[in-house]
C-alpha cells in the first residue's frame, strides 16, 4: 500500500472504508428485512416499533406451501402431539392445515408456480444458450454480409419493451392456443434471451484463437468436429456464465408472465404479489415466498461475480 502516505490520506482512507460499510448496511437492509420477516410469527411482522430480535420459526414457509383454515377451537393435546412439527407451527398461529378426505395435505398455489418458474426458466435458458452459441460462432468465424446490421437487429429485439411485444403475441397466442401454456412463455423467454446470448457468446468465442481450429482442420477434423471438440470446451466458462444470466432473466421476468399466464403456466413473479390482495395481507407468508424466490438468484450472483460486468454490458466491456 504505497499509496497511503500522509496522515491526511490515512484518515481519508479510513473514512471511506467506514462510509462504504454504512452504504453496504443500507443496501443490504431491505434484503435482510425481508429475510427476517420470512422467519417471524405473524404477530411480530407488523409491530411498531419493528421487531428485530425474535425466535425464528418456519411457520411462514409451511403456510406458504399449504392451504389452511381458521381454527374454531384449540386442538386437543392428543391431536396436537400427534401432528408433525411443521403442522404444530400452524396450530400455534391459530390455524390448521387443510387435509383431503384421505388425510393428504392440500397444497397452496405456490409450489406449482415455483415449479413452473423452474421449468420455464431452465428450458428457455437451454434453448437460448444453445442457439446463441452456434450463432455467435457463425458471426465470429465466418464472413457475413452486413454483419453489424444483423447484430444490431439481434440486439434491438432485446430492447423492445415487453408490453409492446406482448400485445400482438397475446392476440397470436390466442389464435393458436398458446396463452397460459408453458410452451408459450418458453418461446417468449427464449426470444428475449437469444439476442443477449448471441452478443455475450460472440465476445467469448472471439477470444478463442482461430489457430486452434485451423490446426485441427489441418489434422483432418471437419469444421463441425473442430467446433464441438475444440471451440465448445474452450468456451465452457462463457457458456456457463451466459446460461446463468439467461436463467436469472427468465426467472425474474414479470410483465410477459403477468399478461400471458393466469393459472396453469403462471410463474412465481406474478403469483407472489397477487397474494397481497385485499384486506390484511400476511406479510410473513409473502416474505417467505420472496425469500425462496431470491435464494437461487443470490447464489448465482456469487457464482457469476467475475462475469457480471461482461454480462451487464452485453460483452462490450471485459476486465
Amino acid at each position: 500500500m504505497a499509496a497511503v502516505r500522509t496522515k491526511g490520506e490515512m484518515l481519508r482512507h479510513r473514512l471511506s472504508i467506514i462510509s462504504l460499510l454504512v452504504i453496504l448496511a443500507l443496501f443490504l437492509a431491505p434484503i435482510f428485512w425481508i429475510t427476517a420477516t420470512a422467519f417471524k410469527p405473524r404477530n411480530l411482522a407488523t409491530t411498531v416499533p419493528p421487531t428485530v430480535f425474535f425466535q425464528p420459526e418456519f411457520s411462514p414457509f409451511v403456510k406458504l406451501m399449504t392451504k389452511r383454515s381458521q381454527l374454531r377451537s384449540a386442538p386437543t393435546a392428543e391431536v396436537y402431539n400427534a401432528a408433525p412439527w411443521w403442522e404444530q407451527t400452524v396450530f400455534d398461529g391459530g390455524e390448521k392445515v387443510v387435509r383431503s378426505g384421505k388425510g393428504e395435505v392440500q397444497l397452496s398455489g405456490f409450489p406449482s408456480r415455483f415449479l413452473n418458474s423452474l421449468i420455464i426458466a431452465i428450458t428457455s435458458t437451454v434453448l437460448a444458450v444453445g442457439m446463441g452459441t452456434i450463432t455467435a460462432y457463425g458471426f465470429s468465424r465466418f464472413k457475413v454480409a452486413g454483419e453489424d446490421d444483423w447484430l444490431f437487429f439481434i440486439l434491438s429485439t432485446r430492447m423492445l419493451p415487453p408490453v409492446v411485444v406482448a400485445i400482438p403475441m397475446f392476440l397470436m397466442y390466442r389464435v393458436v392456443g398458446l396463452n397460459d401454456t408453458h410452451l408459450g412463455l418458453i418461446i417468449l423467454y427464449t426470444a428475449f434471451n437469444l439476442s443477449f446470448s448471441v452478443w455475450l457468446m460472440k465476445g467469448f468465442i472471439d477470444e478463442i484463437p482461430k489457430e486452434y481450429e485451423d490446426a485441427a482442420l489441418v489434422d483432418g477434423y471437419t469444421r463441425m468436429q473442430a467446433f464441438f471438440r475444440i471451440v465448445l470446451p474452450e468456451a465452457a466458462t462463457g457458456i456457463a456464465a451466459t446460461a446463468v444470466f439467461c436463467f436469472i432473466t427468465a426467472w425474474n421476468e414479470y410483465a410477459f408472465a403477468l399478461i400471458m399466464t393466469n393459472k396453469r403456466a403462471q410463474t412465481a413473479p406474478p403469483f407472489i404479489p397477487s397474494q397481497v390482495g385485499s384486506g390484511l395481507p400476511d406479510w410473513t407468508v409473502i416474505a417467505a415466498g420472496t425469500f425462496l424466490f431470491l435464494v437461487p438468484v443470490a447464489i448465482f450472483t456469487f457464482l457469476l461475480r467475475n462475469h457480471l460486468l461482461r454480462g451487464m454490458s452485453f460483452g462490450a466491456i471485459r476486465k
Binding site: 413473479p269 431470491l294 443470490a298
Partner: peptide, 10 residues
C-alpha cells in the same frame, strides 16, 4: 451488486 440481480416485481 446483489440488488440489481433480483426480480423487479419482488
Amino acid at each position: 451488486l446483489l440488488p440489481m440481480m433480483l426480480s423487479a416485481a419482488v
